[in-house]
Design a binder for these strands. Structure first.
Lengths: 157, 157
DNA sequence: ATAATTCGCACCGAATTGCTGCGCTTTCCC
DNA sequence: GGGAAAGCGCAGCAATTCGGTGCGAATTAT
């Protein structure tokens, strides 16, 4: 199914919240109080974001989280990749699967499907956290589905 | 997770196969023999496609399926919507959920997330079965994420 | 009749998802 | 120093979804 998980949804809520108070240390509890987000799960998500280096965490009494980078430089793609694992359109397109997918040779939709995946991914890569907050147009894609199929050059590395 | 289900994958394989022999009646068994697709499940998928009017089915001895429309007029979006149900980026964006999603008012990422969904959807809507088969560029998106957020005007109706 | 097909359920096992519990560590404040 | 506040790590649980199958009925060419 084409959808994002709750983890990503919560993560985005938190990130946007952090972005609004850039610099300030915000606790998971505070965020959990403002939105109907199970704070326990939110903490889990924040932890993952911290692992990925998107947020900094401060422990201890008045601890909490801050954005580790400006909102403009955080792409939706990064968040999704971090919170949901490697994205793929079908299982056999997942690079780490390493199973050459027996169809491979015959499968007539493999590479096209790859292009779709690239397009979706490109969409997310080009969407920054900042633009998610802006009211205006987010991004203008063009030529996102090129024959090369490599619309999303680098993901995480 | 951002991915298509096996159902869609199998459906696309079948549709492409049907498109290649446009006009000819092709049985589920034949398709199942060419690709490592459980023919039982394939039949299930084909049935759904028939329900949605994308393919015609002929019963009886030399029965099978044919494309119900030219490959150019079948969009990837239609197939996905038909095989995976209403697409949504998060649960609360699903129209039929009807739960107004308590955050709604406060949720800072609802509408942006909606735009993402629209963008992805738009991508699929603009990708025809035919273009999936062509080797060239598939589609050139531009302005897919407009502030209006309604990048995908009509879905199924 | 018989064989080849699709059709319509219903069902099962496995994986994923959303969520919670419990205890530990770190840090601030008194 | 002691307590409270906060993050960290791991493990587990319930519900849903997904991939796949079984079985029989209906339909049609030979």
């Amino acid at each position: 199914m084409i959808k994002l998980t709750k983890r990503t949804e919560y993560g985005l809520i938190a990130l946007v919240h952090l972005a609004e108070r850039q610099g300030q240390v915000v606790s998971a509890r505070e965020i959990g109080e403002q939105y109907p987000v199970p704070r326990r799960l939110l903490a889990e998500v924040l932890k993952d974001l911290q692992h990925g280096g998107l947020v900094n965490s401060t422990r201890g009494a008045h601890g909490g989280y801050t954005l580790a980078a400006p909102a403009e430089s955080i792409s939706l793609g990064k968040v999704v990749a971090m919170l949901e694992g490697a994205p793929s359109v079908t299982d056999c397109t997942a690079p780490e699967t390493a199973q050459p997918c027996e169809v491979h040779a015959t499968c007539p939709i493999r590479s096209p499907l790859d292009r779709i995946r690239g397009g979706i991914w490109n969409l997310m890569e080009q969407t920054s956290l900042q633009s998610l907050m802006d009211p205006g147009p987010v991004v203008s894609l063009r030529g996102s589905l090129t024959p090369s199929g490599k619309a999303a050059p680098e993901l995480e590395s």
